[in-house]
Amino acid sequence: MDLGDQERVTLALISDTHGTLERVLLPWLAEVDVIVHAGDLLDPGELRQLAPKSGHLVVVRGNNDTPGQWPEGTEALLDTLPEQAYLDLPGGRLVVEHGHRVNPARTRHERLRRRHPEARAIVYGHTHRRVIDTDETPWVLNPGAAGRQRAFGGIGFLRLTATVDEWQVEAVTLPKRGRDT
């Protein structure tokens, strides 16, 4: 997707909804230009609920996005999900993949950076743990879980704002509500 000619693009980076997207996030997600889902969707019905301003959704396939875990009859949609996605934004390229094929975990960021040196930032999911690693370029970002399963650190997402001159990333986390987080 090429949005590099825009002055400013705001993205919601989400992952690991596992069919349990937290509905209270929907108003926030509707305020962005693009929603990026870094895999483990499991319920394609959730895509109908995601309505960014531009209508642009980018979804990659996670390790749990398999025919056995998706509802029957949705295989054709599942087959359209790529392993990786590339978005040209103002000021650089964003690369998205689920991250489950980049192991061992202790060297995941290093390996992602070597795999995608052309990126300004790399988004991955899989771990359900939010990470904002902006110490070197490309940045490595994990939005954590936007669903109710294993949302370590709380249910939420990352909001990325990209302009030609500057990228900013902000964590949005729901308040804990007892046993479901």
Rank of each mutant, 00 (worst) to 15 (best):
M1H: 09
D2N: 13
D5K: 13
A12N: 06
L13I: 05
I14G: 07
G19A: 05
L21F: 14
R23L: 14
V24F: 11
L25W: 01
A30H: 06
V32R: 11
V34T: 12
V34D: 02
I35R: 02
H37C: 10
A38N: 04
L41N: 01
L42M: 12
P44A: 10
P44R: 02
G45P: 12
E46W: 13
E46F: 14
E46H: 12
L47A: 08
L47V: 14
S54F: 09
H56Q: 14
L57F: 06
V58L: 03
V59A: 02
V60N: 03
N63G: 02
P67I: 06
G68Q: 13
W70K: 08
E72A: 15
L77G: 03
L78M: 04
T80L: 13
T80F: 08
L81P: 10
E83C: 09
Q84V: 15
A85F: 06
Y86F: 14
Y86P: 04
L94N: 00
L94T: 00
V95R: 07
V95S: 03
V95I: 13
V95C: 03
V95F: 02
V95H: 05
V96Y: 01
V96K: 03
G99K: 12
N103G: 10
T107H: 10
H109N: 15
R114I: 11
R115E: 11
G125F: 01
V131A: 13
V131N: 04
W139E: 10
W139K: 07
L141I: 01
N142M: 09
A145N: 05
A145T: 08
A146M: 10
G147C: 01
R148D: 05
Q149H: 15
R150K: 13
A151F: 01
F152K: 14
F152P: 00
R159K: 13
R159N: 01
L160Q: 04
W167C: 13
Q168H: 15
P175G: 03
G178L: 00
T181P: 08
